[in-house]
Design a protein around this nucleic acid. Sequence first.
DNA 1: TTGAAAAACTGCATAATATCAATTTTTAAA
DNA 2: TTTAAAAATTGATATTATGCAGTTTTTCAA
Lengths: 227, 227
Amino acid sequence: MDKWDFKSGSILSGLPENDLDQLMAHRLEQVYKKGELIFREGAYPQGIFYIMAGKVKKFKVDESGREHIVYVANAGDLIGYHAVLAEERYPDSTAALEESRIAFIPKEDFLDMLNHSGILGRRLLKNLSHEFGVLANGLTLFTQKSVRERLALQLVVLREKYKVDFQPGMSVIINMSREDLAGLVGTTKENVVRVLTEFKQAGMLETRGRKIVIHDVGQLVRIANYR
Amino acid sequence: MDKWDFKSGSILSGLPENDLDQLMAHRLEQVYKKGELIFREGAYPQGIFYIMAGKVKKFKVDESGREHIVYVANAGDLIGYHAVLAEERYPDSTAALEESRIAFIPKEDFLDMLNHSGILGRRLLKNLSHEFGVLANGLTLFTQKSVRERLALQLVVLREKYKVDFQPGMSVIINMSREDLAGLVGTTKENVVRVLTEFKQAGMLETRGRKIVIHDVGQLVRIANYR
DNA sequence: TTGAAAAACTGCATAATATCAATTTTTAAA
DNA sequence: TTTAAAAATTGATATTATGCAGTTTTTCAA
């Protein structure tokens, strides 16, 4: 068992232990409360963040104040490294969706590692290329699918992120406000409510207070892929 | 003057000449006619493509047959490398928008170069990170701007891609079908026509047959950024 | 437990966008 | 040129999404 027990599939998992020791040497661990800002759009990056536990949202706020969520990151994800690599300011803000433990790694350590260990660079390239494809795909979905289809799709994606100790057929609880969901789908909170009501009546899900319990993913997948 | 006279700002420009010699050694140059397919979504990548002259569109076709253009690539751009790096199939198709000369570089040569020269890897990381930010930004724009605003924005972007030997104040001719434009904006060809008519009446542009002549970019920029 | 405050929900009016069915214009080949 | 095919355009109509106002429910802290 590794000293650094990174979730399998995460960018850092499986890297040489010495490299990780060096990368994490000057890290700064911090617990962020729900809603707390981790970094703000336009700030100059001083390092990267590794999510040890919890969930965060990457989002942009438009001129009318509406928030659009670009991505929901999970434990095991590395965030903020695009801006460091591109040598640009952060293109979006990041805040905790729930209480989260996050390690800050100074950019010097990150860049040193990148120069010294070819593996990390290669891993990042692969990861970035993959993420790029996912994002490009999302772009298509957004412009060509209805609010109903987009919400169904996002619920399927969120179900993956929120499921723990999952057994086949088990329901998954998503704990996210209607407003955040609207920001993720690219619509208003009212529309989210309307569509959720429809899905609830069709038996696909259930709402417990503000939590959403997904029962029938299959049907949601079918709606998301329709046309 | 370089042997490989790559457009400045393109991924390959400024790399050591020896590296480029090696990278381009087994290339296969080919001329594609307008509309001709370069690679199809879902195919397994055998290499990467470098656009020497011309323009191509990267697009996805949805279940109803509608085409959505993800990106318009220009001379100097490298395409298809995301899939090679991610070790995945192509997430979208690519076809020539006009007659284009394109070099195919076998993936072995590309990957060899990546392992042997750290510069290319670093350049790609930077480029990918940047593109990612642009795309993420585009996603926000699409979900929160109207068709009118999106079309104005795309016209501004296309003007950059289509301008040659440009002098300040000079008009730029965009040669793209209403249907491709619709695919780029994420709407129907009818809506594109309606908005173009409005812009024409306001004196921002002129249509000559199916070509679009951009006169007043400033106004288009203003519309694109409104709210 | 209770009482704000925040979030979620509902209905209705309005606005934006898509669809369909012509008609006209442009293009490119004979 | 001429002409058929492709593309662009227009108008009428249907569908979908938004904004607002008010009500109800949930949450959280006193």
